[in-house]
Simulated scan of single mutants.
Amino acid sequence: MRIPASSRLLIAGATAVAVLWSGGTAYADLDGNRASSPSPDASGGAKGKGLSAAVSRIRVTQVSGPTGGNRGSLSSTDVNWTPPPCWYEPVLTPDQLKALAETNGLGYVSPHTSWGGEKLWTDHYRDGKDAYNFKDGSLDTAKGYEDYNTGKNGYFWRGVAPDTADPASWDCERVMFWQNAGAVPAVPNAPTAKTLAEYAYDKVEVPGTEIELKPEGRSTVNAPTWVWLDKGTFQEVTVRAELPNTNLWAQTTAKPVALHLEPGTGDAETFPASGDCEIDDDGSIGTPYRTGDAGGTPPCGISYVRATAGDPYELNASVTWQITWEGTGGAGGTLPNGTFETTRPMSVQEIQSVNR
């Protein structure tokens, strides 16, 4: 097959592959050897009818847990864990694809490649002409379609990559393809319930770590500072993710299990010694300070042994959240624990003598 002059060179990692789109221009934005996010001018939005390079159609709803106040995303305790870099989704019916091809002619056929020009779309999806395909890491040929598969029951699927600068996002680069309704395509990186669970993990927002202190904000050398949270402060947070036009769903639940204290200086003692205060089933942590507790040892707290000189210490309080999930067909399991942390300034004074 002769290579047309309009073909573009795509580079993924250290592999250079010529990808050919006859009769028009294929756009792929690159940054050295890394794929970059497509520019706004080539977003492929097609005014609501086209294909976005990064926006997933997965629907996410919060099923339980607080929805207001100070909240934030979790950081995985496993530094090597990341959400899925890419997967495939059903995006267009035959009629929707026809409308895109013959009224706009601009949109993405893979996370990194857009087609600009009506003939690119009509050649492959209407007139049955083959197209070159960057499939599963190598160059291949995608067979053409007749009249956009009009009259058939199903969807055209296309890769989605939330971060197109991630080199792993090239793993879903095959050209948009057909799948009959009621089935998930048997291709690498096809979505699963676990894919949705991991996607939902990245959408979980947990309440801020607003701990109670006694004394508040200013401690005395060698006098314990009590730390606690009233019951019900922390609740499980459950997020549900569903992929439309499939039977795939997953619910990811974050359960608070421990509070960890870092005093902000080596000149301090934590209670317990590990700095880990367990979270009770009712969502409480530690024991509230009460009159008469002065001089006692708190079940959760800190004792500073050196006064601050100038800037206060930064007390770091981080809550560990245990992550579980369940999904389609009885699937389920665990994901890496997550943490959410806040800091509190702590001034520590030294009292030379006390008169009673």
Rank of each mutant, 00 (worst) to 15 (best):
P299F: 08
D311Y: 08
D311T: 14
L315A: 07
C300P: 03
A294Q: 12
A294P: 00
E326S: 13
L315G: 04
A307P: 01
E314K: 15
C300E: 03
G310K: 08
G296E: 12
G296V: 00
R306P: 00
C300V: 04
S318D: 13
V305N: 14
V319Y: 06
I302V: 15
C300S: 05
G296D: 11
T328Q: 14
G327T: 07
G296Q: 14
T297H: 03
N316R: 15
N316H: 13
G310P: 06
A317D: 10
W321C: 04
T320A: 12
I302Q: 06
I323Y: 08
Y313V: 02
N316P: 00
C300D: 01
Q322I: 00
A307W: 01
Y313L: 03
G327P: 02
P299M: 06
A309S: 15
G310V: 06
P299N: 13
T297Y: 02
I302K: 02
G329P: 02
Y313F: 14
T324D: 13
G329N: 10
S303A: 14
N316L: 11
T328W: 01
G327A: 06
W325N: 03
W321R: 06
S318R: 15
I302Y: 05
D311A: 15
T320G: 03
P312W: 08
T297A: 07
G292T: 04
E314N: 14
T324L: 01
P298Y: 07
T328G: 03
W321I: 02
G296T: 14
V305T: 15
Y304L: 04
G296A: 13
Q322D: 15
G327H: 03
V319S: 07
V319H: 08
E326C: 00
E314H: 11
P298G: 09
W325H: 09
A309Q: 14
C300M: 05
